[in-house]
Computed example of a mutant assay.
Amino acid sequence: MMTPDYCRMMARYNAWQNKQMKAALEALDHETLTQDRGAFFGSILKTANHILWGDLIWMAKFDGGEPPSGGIPGSVDLNPTLAAWSADRFRTDARILNWARRVQTVELLGEMRWYSGAMGTNVAVPTPQCVTHFFNHQTHHRGQIHAMVTAAGGTGWNTDLVFMPKDGPWL
């Protein structure tokens, strides 16, 4: 059963990971961040933008806020620079943490329905599966970024959930 505590833990994990990832990305130059590395979304910055775009899409479903424009192909161009991405990422992580702090068990029941542009059809998916996917999507693509950063000679960061600090600050 999906619980609010799970959402809070994973929102904290997301913010913790993004804070560490931001520090690793800031140690790289713009050319390194934007070089095509053969990953699904090409570069480190494009992959970071895609994660952020996905977070904004899912948060719009969860909290009723405004989704970003465009679809998956345009997700990689959400922010042209690391500085712009960092500001947007910070705001989005705060939004995710605030949603997780407020979410109630009843909101995690049932199913979610929407038109999926990626699938080209209406879908209905159990809410717990949507929330799990939301957090898994972040982790999956951050893993790709971690691999690209270390392959580029940058420093990786601790990604182990079991070693997440018990107390913040999360942002």
Score class of each variant (00 low, 15 high):
residue 125 V to D: 03
residue 119 M to Q: 15
residue 95 R to N: 05
residue 131 V to F: 00
residue 128 P to M: 11
residue 132 T to F: 13
residue 57 I to G: 04
residue 111 E to S: 15
residue 166 K to V: 04
residue 19 K to G: 07
residue 44 I to C: 14
residue 51 I to H: 07
residue 23 A to R: 15
residue 1 M to A: 10
residue 152 A to D: 11
residue 43 S to R: 07
residue 31 E to C: 02
residue 136 N to G: 01
residue 12 R to W: 02
residue 109 L to G: 00
residue 115 Y to F: 15
residue 116 S to K: 10
residue 128 P to N: 06
residue 54 G to A: 14
residue 27 A to Y: 10
residue 97 L to G: 00
residue 146 H to L: 15
residue 155 T to K: 15
residue 118 A to S: 15
residue 26 E to K: 14
residue 68 P to D: 01
residue 39 A to Y: 13
residue 125 V to H: 03
residue 31 E to L: 03
residue 120 G to F: 05
residue 56 L to R: 15
residue 20 Q to A: 10
residue 88 D to G: 03
residue 115 Y to Q: 08
residue 146 H to K: 07
residue 61 K to S: 04
residue 3 T to G: 02
residue 146 H to G: 10
residue 99 W to E: 07
residue 152 A to E: 06
residue 72 I to R: 14
residue 44 I to Q: 06
residue 53 W to S: 07
residue 110 G to R: 13
residue 10 M to K: 09
residue 161 L to D: 08
residue 118 A to R: 14
residue 171 L to E: 13
residue 130 C to E: 11
residue 171 L to G: 12
residue 43 S to N: 09
residue 73 P to L: 11
residue 77 D to I: 03
residue 139 T to R: 04
residue 126 P to F: 08
residue 146 H to F: 13
residue 7 C to A: 14
residue 9 M to D: 10
residue 102 R to P: 00
residue 104 Q to S: 13
residue 126 P to Y: 04
residue 36 D to M: 05
residue 86 S to T: 15
residue 13 Y to S: 08
residue 15 A to C: 03
residue 47 T to R: 05
residue 170 W to Y: 05
residue 164 M to D: 08
residue 70 G to V: 08
residue 55 D to G: 14
residue 98 N to M: 09
residue 5 D to E: 14
residue 128 P to D: 06
residue 10 M to V: 00
residue 129 Q to L: 13
residue 62 F to P: 01
residue 64 G to I: 06
residue 115 Y to V: 09
residue 69 S to I: 03
residue 99 W to L: 09
residue 114 W to H: 12
residue 68 P to R: 07
residue 66 E to M: 09
residue 15 A to N: 02
residue 42 G to D: 07
residue 43 S to I: 01
residue 59 M to R: 10
residue 28 L to F: 11
residue 45 L to E: 04
residue 142 R to E: 00
residue 60 A to T: 06
residue 21 M to D: 02
residue 39 A to I: 02
residue 138 Q to F: 13
residue 65 G to P: 01
residue 28 L to N: 10
residue 17 Q to C: 11
residue 34 T to D: 04
residue 21 M to F: 08
residue 15 A to I: 03
residue 58 W to S: 01
residue 61 K to A: 03
residue 95 R to V: 01
residue 151 A to H: 06
residue 1 M to E: 12
residue 140 H to F: 10
residue 86 S to P: 13
residue 144 Q to M: 10
residue 114 W to Q: 04
residue 158 N to Y: 02
residue 139 T to W: 06
residue 63 D to P: 00
residue 85 W to I: 09
residue 36 D to W: 09
residue 79 N to E: 12
residue 20 Q to I: 00
residue 26 E to V: 01
